[in-house]
Nucleic acid binder design. Structure first.
Lengths: 198, 198
DNA sequence: TACGGTCACTAACGAGCGTTAGTCAGCCCA
DNA sequence: TGGGCTGACTAACGCTCGTTAGTGACCGTA
């Protein structure tokens, strides 16, 4: 048999393996030597495909939080009544956390390791998402279709509920990402006291 | 004025400052020198009050997960119908995550840094809590008082919902731990499709 | 065949980590 | 007054980390 050939190392593959290991052991708990090892390469070779370990974390956080906001605005722009908007917003947020588990785990765990300005940008995006979702809930409450004492509390609950999917979801489990997202979007409506149509 | 006297360093205070810093920066992200600095002491002096950095993490995880189970069994043993049991179980779990934020953050973040047998013991306790809560939900579904497609999914949702309180709760916020716990226990009942009595 | 670019390598760095050893000041109690 | 315990200190250890420098093998192109 011929010599086994290693897959070519690209910046994309470096980021991918970093993502897996950061999600598993945390940013500080992951050594560059482990990322290199997973790629079948020595540590300094990584620097042909990245600028620093920190840059890996920053790019993960940056693209992920930007994606969350883009998702939200996409479904929000479709319009509709508060229950429809909330359902779609929760659904897409839940779905992302099932299909992008590693990204979510890293963002929610290693934010404190970020420096400015990336950290501030991330918090701003998080706040924007939070306030936008809260506005949807508040509107539903005003229209009498949602029933919660505190829209802020319900917003926290729904967001964190979806985030937590990343902590237990498995592609090999009994439910697909779509199924879980649907169920969780239903939970979101229940949390705000909106009775299902069916 | 006289010389300022430093509070006496005790193993309890070491653990307390470790808890704060672990929760803030993560286990691997916290250096013993930072814990020592917070106590106004040099790093090696810590070893008069602890055995190792790892032991700090282990004792945090151990006492916290044991406390969660003790809480659950206490309210479970009071008996009652599934809605009552679920409400109380969610309430005490939520309450703990508001009053023991740091512990919860560390347990949910740095579990992967544990070695056996502590890690296995922690997972076993987590599974026990998970299965016990799921059993309550399943019973409610069988009796027709809860309405969920998957008790497992609802159980995950409720547990993680409560856990997430640790991520945003503040003692200085508008709601007390008791108020948040009550609201979240209500969310739990809504998630399982159990209409409120009032 | 000669050239230039790509990229993995070895070697080495400075810094920081957790931890241990050994010293010494302060205190309680006989 | 003296002895022993407590506990903080300095110094130093071995190790691992992220990162840089410099070398050379490979490969497509002229």
């Amino acid at each position: 048999m011929g010599a086994t050939v290693r897959d070519p190392v690209t910046s994309h593959r470096v980021l991918d393996h970093a993502l897996t290991l950061f999600a598993e052991r945390g940013y500080h708990g992951t050594a560059l030597s482990e990322i290199a090892g997973a790629l079948g390469v020595r540590t300094p070779s990584l620097y042909n495909h990245m600028r620093s370990k920190h840059e890996l974390l920053e790019s993960i956080v940056d693209t992920t939080t930007a994606g969350v906001l883009a998702d939200f605005h996409a479904v929000h722009d479709e319009g509709g009544e508060p229950p429809d908007v909330l359902y779609r917003a929760a659904r897409v947020y839940a779905h992302r956390h099932a299909t992008h588990r590693r990204e979510a785990l890293v963002v929610n765990r290693d934010t404190s390791s970020l420096d400015e300005p990336v950290r501030g940008a991330m918090q701003a995006r998080r706040r924007e998402h939070e306030h936008a979702l809260r506005a949807v809930i508040s509107e539903g409450v005003e229209r009498g279709v949602f029933h919660v004492e505190s829209p802020a509390l319900a917003s926290f609950a729904i967001r964190e509920l979806c985030v937590s999917i990343a902590r237990w979801f498995s592609e090999d489990g009994p439910l697909s990402a779509d199924q879980v997202a649907d169920q969780y979007a239903g939970f979101a409506l229940r949390i705000v006291g909106c009775a299902p149509d069916s």
